[in-house]
Design a binder for these strands. Structure first.
Lengths: 294, 294
DNA sequence: AAGTGGTCTAGACCACACT
DNA sequence: GTGTGGTCTAGACCACTTC
């Protein structure tokens, strides 16, 4: 949508589902250690707000900056670090934890990128007053529905390989007539139809068994097949349902529906999926959070 | 929307309008310099793909990592760095430019975050096959319309201060009945109505002159008033237009409209704006790009 | 074995905000 | 002036990928 922020700023939208993103873990660690500092469990009391326990485990395969980042994130989520409170300066924090300043900065930066912290030069690092309400509306994928306890189900209405139409070929960057999977699914929540999903995928990328498609979401299948998703172009609009669409979705003809078209690309920029979806506007909306990217 | 990506990954959506984001600039620079390396303009030929000119200006107030980042970004945009090509290893690059490896890494990382580069351990850093089509549809704000050459215009239909309703008070985190600005605007492009925008803002944050509102967008006014936008919660849906809405938007009653509700927060998490907007589905859609956040 | 990115250290100077 | 984050250096060891 060219997302409506200030002209000079890029935008980032972050899904509220910010669970652990497990990094590629190192196995062991043997850097130059601080010679005279015992480090380890340190109860922060020297600076800023901190009255919380922080400490890193150098024998763990998890990167130090990531351990710290997670601890800070949890402290914020649990309210141990009050919104608006100062974190204490980076140097002290590094000293108390037995880490170097760059490592501490890396941890803090990752939380700034997530929108949990704000840094101000000359002032300090503060916890943002969280406006982190849980999503009230439903979300768009099987896994999200499942997470929200919405009892999702999928009916696979179509699952074939056929020649690509001009539109599909263009969106996937293939030659017209090239073989592609065509999948059509009806997504239900609590036994109520929510969305009609039509997807096209190039052949050879992953097996697409109807049973798998009914058991889980497409993206999870792709990830399991080691397809590394990288980016997507997406368009959200609305229109009146056709008679056929209305019948599928238990709506009446002419009822407003949300449309979403999306092409997904992998690491190397290959299009790996094109989806053209219809959602019942009466039961569905897209909810997300925007972060301004300095 | 809890954005439909893989369960374990957070999502980021980036507006395609990624113009320069001017960093707080330093004035001078006098770090320890590499002693024996003349540095400066270097034509890359030693490693990887690079046959492009890179070089940094140490007398510039612009941070070195940012200078490098911009040069690489331009090279990618202009096709001087072909999609899929390797960038050459970080150490060589640092040596050739007379920079340290962390500085080079910082430059590269910023492009990885933007989705332009991909790093693979043991392999190298590659340029992503760009799928950067310009947005085909219109965008959502005055400035975006203007950028797209859409001849935007705004009619201010309402601009008062009045007590907050329960809904508005809740969204802005104020007490019910507290004074708030209420603004209603009709947004046109090429003299055609595109959207009906209703906004509420707390008083005292910035002056809201009707003339200003007709000349530019609300976010630009807020930025000019030194309101530092930080994040927003947003919901996109659809429904049938009421008779009144249809009349305002030159649609017929019952026509599908896109709805967007958004609360915007500043650095400290204060709600600075609540908007409840209606877009003509026949003329408008939201277009954006998603980036998977490792 | 060689080459890459991923992580980490121990310093340093600078710009900015506050008192 | 003092304290903060912003930037930068010159090293180091590690894990992963490819040959």
């Amino acid at each position: 949508m060219a997302l409506t922020w200030q002209a000079r700023k890029a935008l980032s939208i972050v899904c509220q589902d910010n669970r652990t993103s497990p990094l590629p873990a190192n196995r062991t660690r043997d850097y130059a250690r601080p010679v005279s500092k015992p480090a380890g469990q340190v109860e922060g009391r020297t600076a800023g707000n901190a009255s919380l326990q922080l400490g890193v485990d150098r024998s763990s395969p998890v990167p130090l900056y990531y351990q710290l980042s997670r601890q800070l994130e949890e402290a914020i989520e649990q309210g141990k670090l009050a919104p608006g409170s100062l974190l204490g300066n980076e140097i002290d924090l590094a000293g108390r934890l037995g880490l170097s300043r760059p490592t501490v900065r890396q941890a803090i930066q990752s939380l700034v990128d997530k929108g949990l912290l704000v840094r101000r030069r000359g002032v300090g690092t503060q916890v943002v007053h969280s406006q982190v309400k849980r999503p009230l509306e439903l979300s768009s994928l099987y896994d999200d529905l499942e997470t929200a306890g919405q009892r999702p189900a999928t009916h696979v209405l179509h699952n074939t390989v056929e020649p690509a139409s001009a539109e599909v070929a263009a969106m996937l960057g293939l030659a017209e007539g090239a073989d592609v999977h065509r999948i059509e699914r009806l997504r239900l929540a609590h036994d109520e139809p929510m969305a009609y999903l039509r997807n096209h995928l190039p052949v050879g990328l992953l097996p697409l068994e109807t049973a798998d498609l009914e058991a889980t979401g497409l993206y999870k299948l792709m990830r399991n097949a080691s397809v590394t998703l990288h980016s997507a172009r997406q368009s959200i609009g609305a229109r009146a349902a056709t008679a056929q669409e209305a019948a599928r979705l238990s709506e009446s003809e002419g009822a407003p529906v949300l449309t979403m078209a999306r092409t997904t690309f992998d690491d190397m920029g290959r299009a790996v999926e094109y989806g053209s979806h219809i959602y019942r506007a009466s039961r569905y909306s897209f909810e997300f959070q925007l972060l301004v990217r300095g």
